Amino acid sequence: TFTSYQLEELEKVFQKTHYPDVYAREQLAMRTDLTEARVQVWFQNRRA
């Protein structure tokens, strides 16, 4: 599960791009204290 802060950050990036590159995902992962893999999976699920 994600915190409301994490979801907010993820959604913010999703609004800009549905396909963030690895750099964007790593920045987001650091900001949200998630792994890059978790961020990647979240985007895959969000796009589905």
Rank of each mutant, 00 (worst) to 15 (best):
T1R: 13
T1F: 11
T1N: 13
T1D: 09
T1A: 14
F2R: 01
F2I: 08
T3Y: 05
T3D: 06
T3M: 05
S4E: 13
S4A: 15
S4W: 12
S4V: 14
S4I: 14
S4M: 12
Y5L: 09
Y5H: 07
Y5N: 10
Y5K: 11
Q6F: 09
Q6K: 01
Q6H: 02
L7G: 03
L7Y: 05
L7D: 05
L7E: 10
E8W: 08
E8K: 08
E8I: 09
E8M: 12
E8R: 11
E8T: 10
E8A: 13
E9D: 03
E9Q: 10
E9I: 06
L10C: 05
L10P: 00
L10T: 01
L10E: 05
E11K: 02
E11V: 08
K12G: 06
K12V: 05
K12F: 04
V13G: 04
V13Y: 08
V13N: 02
V13Q: 09
V13W: 07
F14H: 01
F14G: 00
F14D: 06
F14I: 08
F14R: 01
F14T: 00
Q15V: 07
Q15M: 10
Q15H: 07
Q15K: 10
K16I: 11
K16F: 12
T17N: 14
T17Y: 07
T17F: 07
T17C: 11
T17L: 06
T17K: 04
H18M: 13
H18L: 06
H18A: 14
H18C: 09
H18D: 06
Y19P: 14
P20N: 01
P20L: 04
P20G: 02
P20D: 02
P20Q: 02
D21R: 03
D21K: 04
D21S: 12
V22Y: 15
V22C: 09
V22D: 11
V22H: 13
Y23R: 15
A24T: 15
A24Q: 15
A24F: 07
A24Y: 07
A24E: 15
A24I: 13
R25N: 03
R25S: 05
R25L: 15
R25Q: 06
R25I: 15
R25F: 10
R25C: 08
E26Q: 14
E26C: 07
E26V: 14
E26K: 14
Q27R: 05
L28I: 09
L28F: 05
L28V: 08
L28A: 02
A29N: 07
A29C: 08
A29I: 08
M30Y: 13
M30I: 13
M30L: 12
M30N: 13
R31P: 00
R31Y: 05
R31S: 07
T32D: 01
T32K: 01
T32A: 08
D33T: 07
D33V: 05
D33P: 05
L34S: 06
L34K: 01
L34T: 05
T35L: 05
T35M: 04
T35I: 03
E36I: 09
E36V: 14
A37V: 11
A37I: 11
A37E: 15
A37L: 09
A37H: 12
A37F: 12
R38M: 15
R38C: 11
R38G: 08
R38P: 00
V39R: 00
V39H: 00
V39T: 02
V39I: 15
V39P: 00
Q40H: 14
Q40R: 15
Q40P: 01
Q40W: 07
V41E: 15
V41K: 14
V41H: 13
V41F: 11
W42R: 00
W42E: 01
F43I: 02
F43Q: 00
F43G: 00
F43W: 01
Q44N: 08
Q44T: 09
Q44F: 09
Q44I: 13
N45V: 12
N45F: 12
N45G: 08
R46V: 03
R46G: 02
R46S: 03
R46E: 04
R46C: 00
R47T: 04
A48K: 13
A48T: 10
A48F: 09
A48S: 10
A48M: 13
